[in-house]
């Protein structure tokens, strides 16, 4: 069983993509630039091109595309409600009617815009940053001048989320051994509440032991973040290529806005 954060993404059968050897900082900044540009664009053709670009990044990332796409589809589940109601709630020219409710052209376009944008950004994020080792992400964010304490919080989260999930799963196993079956009702909810309270108590107890162990090894308020990152020619090529693609998206958007 892999780390909870990267389960299914870093598993066996993982191919080595060309993005794999890039400087993590270039990938983080690239994903951020991609997100800002895509969210700023509104024309459907431009957004479709952005989604195609994100798909290209996914293929180049070496992540198993099926699993990444399944995660993207799971996110679409969250916005289903919004996308399904928008055509009927946005005023405009009616295209068709469903149970007497007219669906407007403007609403359909807006729904399509949101779907394309959300999927393009998530896909690019998963491809560029989600393919990193979580710890590498922390180091790279530190080099990008993220506040040190925030980076440390993140490192602790990455380290202990797996440990605490193991704790949670052991408690669930113990409950199952005593015949607990999750259901809708007071008994179930109370048991879940006790379970989560116990996880919290154990988390705090563990954090005290962690701090004790850190002090024993001379912890004086700073955690050295070792990880030499070198920005090389390959990264410059990536930055220029992605920058040119994003500039093309901006120009296409401006051309459509002017037309």
């Amino acid at each position: 069983m892999g780390h909870v954060l990267t389960e299914g993404l870093h598993g066996p059968g993982r191919a080595d993509g060309p993005l794999e050897r890039l400087d993590p900082r270039a990938r983080i900044l690239g994903a951020a630039a991609f997100g800002v540009v895509t969210v700023a664009c509104t024309h459907l053709a431009v957004l479709a091109a952005a989604l195609a670009l994100a798909f290209g990044l996914l293929l180049a990332s070496g992540l198993p595309p099926g699993r990444a796409l399944r995660r993207m589809a799971a996110m679409d589940g969250f916005i289903l409600l919004l996308v399904l109601t928008l055509p009927f709630t946005t005023p405009g020219a009616a295209v068709f009617t469903l149970w007497g409710l007219p669906a407007s052209r403007e609403g359909l376009v807006l729904a399509a815009e949101i779907l394309l944008t959300a999927n393009a950004v998530v896909l690019a994020l998963l491809a560029l940053v989600g393919s990193l080792e979580p710890v590498t992400l922390g180091h790279a964010l530190h080099r990008l001048r993220t506040p040190e304490r925030l980076v440390h919080l993140m490192m602790f989260n990455i380290r202990y989320v797996e440990v605490l999930r193991g704790e949670y799963l052991r408690l669930r196993l113990a409950m199952r051994a005593r015949g607990f079956r999750p259901a809708t009702g007071w008994h179930s909810y109370r048991s879940f509440g006790y379970l989560l309270g116990m996880v919290l108590v154990r988390a705090v107890d563990r954090s005290e032991r962690v701090l004790g162990a850190m002090k024993c090894r001379g912890f004086a308020g700073r955690i050295p973040l070792l990880h030499a990152l070198a920005y090389g020619r390959r990264d410059a090529v990536f930055a220029v290529t992605l920058g040119a693609a994003l500039l093309a998206l901006c120009l296409a958007e401006a051309a459509h806005a002017a037309a």
Binding site: L153, R159, Y160
Partner: peptide
């Protein structure tokens, strides 16, 4: 304070698990 970073970090992970 720095002294509380481990506790906050481990609790942050606990709420992630929740």
């Amino acid at each position: 304070p720095l002294e509380r970073i481990p506790a906050a970090g481990v609790l942050s992970a606990a709420f992630f698990v929740a």
